[in-house]
Design a protein around this nucleic acid. Structure first.
Length: 638
RNA sequence: GCCGAUGUAGCUCAAUGGUAGAGCAACUGACUUGUAAUCAGUAGGUUGGCGGUUCGACUCCGCCCAUCGGCUCCA
């Protein structure tokens, strides 16, 4: 080792150190116990990495976000080591950390089942107890290829061949090694608080034409308390699952005779209708005109729109029954856009008609593959708060801005804070020229910039006819679902030959903007249930107030109160069953009715009521007029 | 569609090849109720469907359907 000195800037203050010193030794021993890695000139490295040159060095604590990623990545390695010792012949592939944990994809002789998890976990604990040192080695890529080929790790060889660098790093713990960029924890003993959560299939390199691998999901934390807390949160999140709450609250029903197609029970239908009523109020303000369009179209329409070519696999095909050859020459609409193009083209349009904003709550059907269905969030029968804006090129910016504003208004009103914006660009299968695509993508990117919205790019995820601004919202388990979308389309107007006459009396082609604010009502409701835990705001609550009679003696008084509230157009329930008040209160609480009104003999005598708010134990006595005023003061957006 | 798992009363779950059971909900009755569960009784089942093995199948096997966790795809 050279005795040369280098200058280290540690947590802001400069000092000298011998070249070749492991970075971990720069820190005080007391400090070292919480350190998992270091950042050298901004790059994450192992604590054992020798110092090569002058550097700024920062500590990475085990419970920091970067530290947790490293810990989880190391836990994935530990799991792979355990798996390979338990199931000979299993090949390893990749095993990254994720937002909340980690996974590792294996190619085992036989797919894993959840019954394998305790056994793997057990072996992991043994290996962690052995506290094996985790060592980093470097070697030439070609050498590594040979090494892994000899080990029979063909997936690793595949990965190596795709790496551009000439030298690669290998991590070793005991007799087990893996190709890996690192960094990792210093030894396996650092891995203490972890849990394996589930197994799943996953395609090699995410391509369904490739081999199906066995993926094991798990998570790890700095200590047991943090892990326990995380597992507890997962449990609570599952209790918010809209499929469970939706059924318990009597909102929706699924039946195996209509897979992927929700039934909205009276209460669920009420919420849906209130959401739609809200959007209609906004339409009046934002200048949309609502239309109603056919459900089933002849394929001629889908050929014109391009759906026949690029969306047919997702369409339910049918016939009018009179087709002699029995051909499926009709299809249920999977989107409204072609119908709106037909409306646009039904008369000669002038620039004075533009922007023409057509809204449609039409029912759409998409033949989604069976394995993707998921409660309300992924369905085959859906309603979008869909609209198509036909406008001149120089009107696009203001229209996109206006719709971004509408998105913000709606998501603020409904308390959706964690939205993520994406720009989805040209997919492999698309209509139109690449030049047009790049141009329209840039217009959407500019719009988000102009509105101060940060976004990420979702390459190749655009619709087949144009790029999309996508707005994602997480569910209770933090899975992200796309809700709102704003899409720019130069193709559909061309395919339908849409035109307008401009102010100089020459013919021009309009641009089409596809957009939805809630997205699909089904998915939106699913997310809304999970976000609110079923506690809808007053204006959306299917039952806004429930009148509880104290005994049979006051049954008619309770009914009278309820009838009065109904006349004020509130959604009222009345519970005059022969039950104790505590029981009725409990049931109203479980049904998540925002207001309970108790009618007993005292109230009947004085013409008052006792008002109890949901989740508020304290009741309040008031006159019926005051009750109505209280309910009327509840806000409704729009 | 692919990999794995699951499917028993309206809901949550028991019953490990030998007569399908509980709690909640429902219904009936008693109690006449004061802000998160009054008591008793009654009824409820082709154990997802079809086929097979067996003297006998909720239980074992095969196919199908649906659902759940992922992957792929997507709003």
């Amino acid at each position: 080792m050279s005795s040369e000195e280098v200058t280290v800037t540690l947590s802001g203050s400069a000092r000298k150190a011998l070249k070749g010193t492991p970075v971990g030794e720069l820190f005080e021993p007391t400090e070292r116990r919480k350190l998992i890695a270091a950042r050298v000139n901004g790059k994450l490295v192992d604590l054992s990495r020798p110092l090569e040159q002058d550097a700024a060095v920062d500590a990475v604590a085990i419970d920091s976000p970067a530290g947790l990623n490293i810990l989880r990545h190391s836990t994935a390695h530990l799991m792979a080591q355990a798996v390979q010792s338990l199931y000979p012949g299993t090949q390893v592939t990749i095993g990254p950390s994720t937002d909340e944990g980690f996974y590792y994809d294996f190619a085992p002789p036989k797919p894993f089942t959840s019954e394998d998890l305790p056994r793997i976990e057990q072996r992991m604990r043994e290996l962690a107890r052995a506290d094996e040192k985790i060592e980093r080695m470097e070697m030439a890529r070609d050498e590594a290829v040979e090494l892994f080929a000899r080990m029979g790790e063909h997936f690793k060889v595949d990965i190596l061949r795709a790496i551009p660098e000439e030298r690669v790093s290998i991590y070793r713990q005991g007799d087990w090694m893996d190709l890996c960029r690192g960094p990792h924890v210093p030894s396996t003993g650092w891995i203490r608080a972890f849990a394996l959560l589930s197994v799943a299939g996953a395609y090699w390199r995410g391509d369904e034409h490739n081999a199906m691998l066995s993926r094991v999901y798990g998570t790890a934390f700095a200590d047991q308390a943090a892990l326990d807390e995380h597992l507890e949160l997962l449990k609570l999140a599952r209790a918010r699952d809209h499929r469970r709450l939706g059924r318990e609250l009597g909102l929706i029903l699924f039946d195996s005779r209509a897979p992927g197609s929700p039934f909205f029970l009276p209460k669920g239908a009420t919420v849906v209708n209130e959401l739609i009523a809200y959007i209609r109020r906004l339409y009046a303000r934002y200048g949309f005109k609502e239309v109603i369009t056919p459900q089933i179209f002849r394929n001629e329409l889908w050929r014109t729109s391009g759906h026949w070519e690029l969306f047919r696999d997702n369409m339910f095909l049918t016939t009018d029954g009179e087709n002699a050859a029995g051909e499926l020459d009709y299809a249920l609409k999977p989107m409204n856009c072609p119908a709106h193009a037909v409306i646009y083209a039904c008369e000669k349009r002038s620039y004075r008609d533009l922007p023409l904003r057509l809204a449609d709550f039409g029912r759409l059907h998409r033949a989604e593959r069976s394995g993707v269905l998921h409660g309300l969030t992924r369905v085959r029968a859906m309603t979008q708060d869909d609209a198509h804006i036909f406008c001149a090129l120089d009107q696009v910016a203001q229209e996109v801005d206006s719709n971004l504003k509408m998105v913000r208004e709606v998501y603020d009103a409904l308390g959706f804070e964690h939205m993520e914006l994406k720009l989805a660009t040209m997919p492999e299968e698309h209509l139109g020229s690449e030049q047009t695509w790049r141009q329209t993508e840039a217009m959407l990117a500019e719009a988000m910039g102009r509105n101060g919205l940060s976004y990420q790019t979702n390459p190749g995820e655009g619709a087949f006819y144009g790029p999309k601004i996508e707005i994602y919202v997480p569910d209770a388990l933090k899975r992200r679902w796309q809700l709102a979308t704003i899409q720019l389309d130069f193709n559909m107007p061309e395919r339908f030959g849409l035109e307008y006459v401009n102010s100089r009396a020459t013919v021009e082609r309009p641009v089409m903007i596809h957009r939805a604010i809630l997205g699909t009502i089904e998915r939106f409701l699913g997310l809304l249930i999970e976000h609110t835990g079923g506690l809808f705001p007053f204006w959306l609550a299917p039952e806004q107030v429930r009148v509880l009679s104290l005994s049979e003696k006051v049954e008619s008084y309770a009914k009278e109160i309820a009838a009065g509230l109904e006349r004020e157009r509130f959604r009222v329930g009345v519970d005059v069953r022969n039950e104790k008040l505590g029981f009725k209160v409990r049931q109203a609480e479980l049904a998540k009715v925002p207001y309970m009104v108790v009618a007993g003999e005292r109230e009947a005598a004085s013409g008052t009521v006792s008002l109890r708010k949901l989740r508020g134990a304290k009741a309040q006595s008031m006159s019926v007029d005051e009750l109505v005023a209280t309910l009327k003061s509840e806000p409704a957006p729009g």
